[in-house]
């Protein structure tokens, strides 16, 4: 019922390997893949939730074997075809066939600094009224799934499904990824930081005082 990106709490991944700060990329194509993905975003064909879902929707065997930036490039190619910017024939031949109406949206070198500095806020005015305040006890819904689209995008991690936590922060009203990833509108909702005790999450917590805090939308939660 989950997808392979949803790995919080999973066993068996081995040690984490720290690296010095000056190691940014491990191959010349890594920064190229990053830049190609960011530049293609300027074409305006998708939003961040659509692009995340494209990576998550890679076949589990590809998600597992691809290096990080390989996932980005595979998802980018899939999205460009899905949105009609490139054809399957162009990918197969490695050659452009004909012009594109989207060329006028191409990111110019002089516009890069401005685009990166501008960002893309996820907060929206209005939306649903806040039902919870810090200190409230809430329960996360039992299914870590998109409730409208079968197999669709959600930001509810499986390890928190059904768990009980405490609201610690109200972040304001944010775009709901579960809707925005599927072209069904931004559907803004109150977003909360919710704290979960390690002892409530794990059979063998490391320490009774430890906590995990995650950002969860109002529709993921009910009053406990």
């Amino acid at each position: 019922m989950t997808r392979p990106h949803d790995m919080g709490g999973r066993f068996g991944d081995g040690p984490v390997t720290p690296e010095p700060e000056d190691v940014m990329f491990h191959a010349d194509w890594h920064p190229r893949a990053l830049a190609l993905t960011l530049a293609s975003g300027s074409l305006g064909l998708w939003n961040i939730d659509i692009s995340r879902h494209a990576r998550e929707a890679l076949a589990p065997k590809d998600y597992a074997r691809f290096a990080y930036y390989e996932k980005w490039i595979a998802a980018l190619a899939d999205l460009l075809v899905a949105k009609g910017a490139l054809s399957r024939e162009e990918l197969a031949t490695g050659q452009a066939i004909g012009d594109s109406d989207l060329a006028e949206k191409r990111l110019a070198p002089g516009a890069v600094a401005g685009v990166l500095a501008k960002g893309g806020p996820a907060t929206r005015p209005g939306g649903l009224a806040a039902e919870f305040v810090p200190g409230d006890t809430v329960q996360v819904r039992a299914q870590a799934e998109n409730m409208v689209v079968d197999g669709g995008h959600t930001r509810l991690p499986a390890y928190l499904a059904g768990r009980t936590g405490t609201i610690v922060r109200h972040h304001g009203t944010h775009i709901l990824p579960d809707s925005n990833a599927h072209g069904q509108g931004e559907a803004p909702e109150p977003l909360y930081a919710v704290a979960f005790r390690a002892t409530d999450l794990w059979a063998h917590p490391e320490n009774s005082g430890d906590e995990v805090i995650a950002d969860l939308w109002q529709s993921y939660l009910s009053r406990a």
Partner: peptide, 16 residues
């Protein structure tokens, strides 16, 4: 392909 198609400028990638 994206460069030929006019959708990406390699100089913008360098800048990023």
């Amino acid at each position: 392909i994206l460069t030929q198609k006019g959708l990406v400028d390699p100089a913008a990638l360098d800048e990023i």
